[in-house]
């Protein structure tokens, strides 16, 4: 590959990881593109939700179901986990030993899992008030969108575990490094999606 080509924007590994950085060039760029496609997916689900919001079908609506307090906690947890993954990535970039990276990754995963836990708790509470997806078009659209994000977060945690497994097996090799960069991209992306959900679904729903 010619060195004159522009490199992908955003997260990268820097020159002290030369071989991994070269690999990351293509792989992380590819992952960005994948995120773009995923962003369309979420965008369309959000659009569907907006169109469906009035269709409560006589069932419970946003005001009956959403509680800002726990949404706020969830948001904080997710933002904090994003910060943690950021530290993890910085540690990968600037430290030779993986200890700090691992610690921050574990912190990020714990926060994200707490987020998922709160979210499930919310869903169950909603169900208790009749807020199940079968109840109305509005709730169907809600449950098509929000849990999909939660599923992504859970998958990201699973991926984190897999990376830790690879680290244990192979040490901090190029494969682990490049995976970490991609995981960080995914993590921040999910944060962004959550901001979208937070403002559109929750704030928008209660407004």
């Amino acid at each position: 590959m010619s060195a004159t080509q522009t490199r992908h924007p955003g997260l990268n590994l820097g020159s002290n990881h030369q071989s991994a950085d070269d690999r990351a060039e293509t792989e992380v760029f590819g992952f960005w593109v994948f995120m773009m496609s995923d962003a369309i997916l979420f965008g369309l689900l959000m659009a569907t939700y907006v169109v469906m919001r009035p269709n409560t079908n006589g069932g419970p609506g946003p005001h009956d179901l959403f509680e800002l307090k726990s949404i706020f906690i969830e948001t904080m947890l997710l933002l904090a986990s994003s910060v943690a993954i950021g530290f993890s990535h910085l540690a990968l970039k600037h430290e030779d030993r993986p200890t700090k990276m691992v610690i921050w990754l574990v912190v990020a995963m714990a926060l994200a899992l707490a987020f998922v836990g709160f979210e499930i708790h919310d869903f169950l509470k909603m169900a208790g008030k009749g807020g199940v997806p079968q109840a109305s078009g509005f709730l169907s659209a809600f449950f098509a969108l929000v849990p999909l994000h939660g599923l992504h977060v859970s998958a990201a945690c699973l991926w984190g575990l897999a990376i830790l497994g690879q680290l244990a097996r192979y040490g901090l090799d190029d494969g682990v490094k490049v995976s970490m960069v991609r995981l960080a991209v995914l993590w921040h992306f999910l944060d962004l999606v959550w901001i979208g959900i937070f403002s559109l679904v929750y704030i928008g729903g209660l407004a």
Partner: peptide, 23 residues
């Protein structure tokens, strides 16, 4: 979404229940 309607009884594109096939 069509699968959600068919398998889990969602109401995204159904005639009743607040679904909307125009989506």
């Amino acid at each position: 979404l069509l699968a959600l309607d068919r398998y889990l009884d969602f109401h995204l594109f159904t005639n009743g229940g607040g679904g909307n096939m125009m989506n």
